[in-house]
């Protein structure tokens, strides 16, 4: 009995320590299934999410990286009036989907501010800029696209085009698993 108990608790400790809980997701994305078997790495991910309505969200993991990213945005866009407490809010935010000029409003009220998606405007090229900053903040970052199965292809294509313009030709599409059918 004691031995079994010991084993049980050893396993329990192991699983508790190795588990990483799924963070709260800002948006609901139902990913399509595929037979792909490559696992997504745990860290160094820059994730671009496209939801059902075609809104694009940008997220990067690791709070330290987010802090660097925030400072880069602040430096590059002095015209955006950030509040001092915004930095903290940005560090805690998993993903955001507003044009850069609306970012302070979102950071002042992260729960309730309506996010209409990043601006994919080619003249301002905000997503391209954010990708550049993201890679500067964490050079080891991998780009992943997580799009809803019911999103229109043209939005995803727009995102891919922006990636390619930035010379990012290798990226991951996040999918769920499906059994490979027998040929």
């Amino acid at each position: 009995m004691t031995a079994m108990c010991d084993v049980a608790f050893l396993l329990l400790t192991f699983f508790m320590l190795t588990t990483k809980f799924k963070p709260d997701e800002a948006i609901k994305v139902e990913i399509p299934a595929s037979v792909a078997e490559t696992k997504l790495p745990d860290k160094d991910i820059l994730m671009l999410q496209v939801d059902k309505e075609g809104r694009v969200f940008y997220g990067i993991d690791n709070q330290g990286v987010r802090q660097t990213l925030f400072n880069k945005i602040k430096e590059r866009h002095p015209e955006i009036a950030f509040q001092p407490q915004n930095e903290r809010a940005f560090m805690l935010m998993d993903a955001f989907g507003v044009p850069l000029e609306e970012l302070p409003n979102l950071l002042n009220d992260p729960k309730n501010y309506p996010q209409k998606g990043l601006s994919l405007d080619t003249t301002k090229n905000e997503l391209g800029e954010l990708l550049l900053f993201g890679r500067q903040s964490n050079p080891a970052v991998r780009i992943a696209i997580k799009a809803d199965g019911n999103a229109d292809y043209d939005k995803v294509k727009e995102v891919m085009n922006i990636l390619q313009k930035r010379n990012i030709n290798k990226f991951n599409l996040i999918t769920s698993t499906r059994q490979k059918p027998k040929p």
């Binding site: 079994m4 329990l12 490559t38 696992k39 997504l40 290798k170 991951n172 599409l173």
Partner: peptide, 30 residues
């Protein structure tokens, strides 16, 4: 022990189920 095993089961299931797969895509240079 019952509680221990219950928790083990919980952590085992949550740990393995929530790994997303990914499909690597290589696009040609633009």
């Amino acid at each position: 022990v019952d509680l221990g095993f219950l928790l083990i089961t919980f952590f085992m299931l949550t740990a393995s189920l929530n790994k997303p797969q990914s499909m690597e895509l290589n696009m040609p240079e633009k």
